[in-house]
Simulated assay, not measured.
Amino acid sequence: MSEDLHEFALTVNGVTHDLAVPARRLLSDALRHDLGLTGTHVGCEHGVCGACTVLLDGRPVRSCLMFAVTAQGAEVTTVEGLANDDDSLGPVQQAFAECHGLQCGFCTPGFLTTITAGLRDNPTPTHEQARDMIAGNLCRCTGYQNIVKAVERAAELSGEQR
């Protein structure tokens, strides 16, 4: 027995895609398997680790907890959509590179999207606010110190671009 497919339009990183997916297809799976955007990682599949975080209308959401069809009409931004218009690194990406904010890289896409939204809400975070900004994302490798430094550096870089 085949599963019914639901047709809908999904706008990701400024490009609208027509998809036909099963009703229970997760947004993370649609991004990775249907659209080939493999930057969104799936770690725990329970919304705990944050590796699957994308921006939905600018707000961070766990794409492993959301059905793809519920994103119809919204703008989804993945880690692939965080680069500048000229394809150079965005400020958060550049800060991660400068501050050595990644090791294995598995959690990095979730951190990058989370921090991008966090800096939009609070462009000049204190050290404690920078720590709070990333509190919902897990990393098994870095110890978080360089990630916090990257948040602070991204705030500086973003301020310079204004």
Rank of each mutant, 00 (worst) to 15 (best):
T78G: 08
V54C: 07
H46D: 11
Q161A: 15
G47L: 04
E156Y: 01
D57H: 06
R162I: 00
E160T: 15
E75Y: 00
N13L: 05
M1Y: 07
M66P: 13
A9G: 08
C64G: 11
C141Q: 09
E156C: 02
M66K: 09
Q94T: 15
V76R: 08
G136V: 09
V79G: 12
K149W: 05
A74L: 03
G101M: 03
R32F: 06
A150S: 05
R32M: 04
A30C: 10
P60Q: 12
A68T: 15
F67A: 15
S2E: 09
L10K: 02
A154L: 07
G110D: 01
M1E: 09
Q161N: 09
F8K: 06
I115Y: 04
A97K: 00
T38A: 10
S28W: 00
P22F: 01
C52Y: 04
R59G: 02
L10M: 02
A130R: 01
L26E: 06
T11M: 00
R140L: 02
I147F: 09
H6V: 11
G43I: 06
V79E: 12
G36Y: 05
D121N: 02
N84Y: 12
H17I: 05
A23I: 03
D87F: 14
E152T: 12
A9F: 03
I134F: 09
V148K: 04
I115C: 06
N84H: 15
P123N: 05
R120E: 09
